[in-house]
């Protein structure tokens, strides 16, 4: 059986490896939660890469219905075709549009199916998928056909915790909570992405990064993806590490902070804090 290990571009903790392997071995969905920006979505891509399976992504929006993942019956175009006298109209199968789950079930090889941000959808959404995910089959009423999975796909479900998920659904999943990486792990993650970043620059940047995360009242704390973007900018601009050292009160706002702070209130908050620091310093 294929085993999941962290890859060169993705640093996985042992607990994550155990959780993924358990989900793969028992063919149950793996529910992944965690702060935004801790790599929940990337995880599915890495699992697919590690296992050598293709990845099918199903991104959930607030308007997504469970049925859309199975199939949709396009009654409107059938009606139109009927009005225009198209011969296709006689076969109802022409108007069945396959969903992502159907694609995953009928794929020749096993696949990794990512159901991204399941909490965005309606509160009943997970319940509607219970049976389908449990038995890996569903029934198409229009054509009276049962679609059965050829290989049980590896299902990865991510959630940002905006809604509670129903208990019956949770009982069928394995669960993993991605903690925000500590400094050492963060260093490894950065090195995995930018192997030849300057050591002193990275050290100073991480100092600033974790300091910003400590600030109370930020609406959106910068996360891994923001740090990576910021570091990229810093290297492109060829910023000297000294510029990041905030001992000089006038530069309390880090350079190129736009990559780290993503909303206006946060930037304002930061400017105010910097102003206060300057006043105290002066």
């Amino acid at each position: 059986m294929a085993q999941f290990r962290g890859t060169e571009s993705y640093v996985a903790s042992r607990e994550l490896e155990v959780a993924v392997n358990a989900a793969v071995a028992l063919q149950r969905p793996l529910l992944v939660k965690g702060e935004p920006g801790t790599g929940k979505t990337v995880l599915a891509q890495e699992i697919a890469k590690a296992l050598g399976y293709p990845l099918i992504e199903w991104h959930i929006k607030s308007t997504t219905k469970a049925q859309q993942g199975l199939y949709e019956y396009d009654a409107v175009s059938r009606l139109r075709d009927g009005q225009l006298g198209d011969p296709r109209v006689h076969d109802i199968a022409n108007y069945i549009v396959r969903g992502k789950l159907w694609d995953a079930f009928e794929h020749e090889t096993p696949v990794v199916l990512l159901i991204d941000e399941i909490d965005k959808a309606d509160i009943e959404f997970p319940n509607d998928l219970l049976l389908e995910l449990d038995r890996m089959q569903f029934f198409v009423y229009e054509t009276r056909k049962t679609v059965q999975a050829r290989h049980r796909p590896v299902v990865i479900i991510t959630s940002n915790n905006e809604k509670e998920l129903p208990d019956a659904f949770l009982r069928r999943c394995f669960f993993h909570y991605i903690r925000f990486p500590d400094r050492e792990t963060m260093e490894m993650i950065v090195r995995a992405h930018y192997p030849d970043i300057r050591r002193d620059l990275l050290r100073e940047a991480l100092n600033v990064f974790f300091e910003i995360r400590e600030v109370d009242g930020l609406k959106k704390k910068p996360a891994t993806s923001e740090l990576l973007d910021w570091l990229k900018l810093l290297t492109i601009e060829d910023m000297p590490p000294e510029a990041l050292r905030s001992s000089d009160a006038k530069t309390a706002i880090p350079p190129l902070y736009g990559a780290l702070l993503k909303n206006e209130q946060d930037v304002h908050l930061f400017e105010r804090l910097a102003f206060l620091a300057r006043r105290r310093g002066g």
Binding site: E15, V18, A22, L30, K33, N161, F174, F175
Partner: peptide, 18 residues
């Protein structure tokens, strides 16, 4: 350690219970 991780993934479904 592995048993700890595995049982946590299998039995806990909500980070509030961790």
């Amino acid at each position: 350690d592995d048993f700890y991780h595995l049982s946590r993934a299998a039995l806990v479904k909500d980070e509030r219970h961790l």
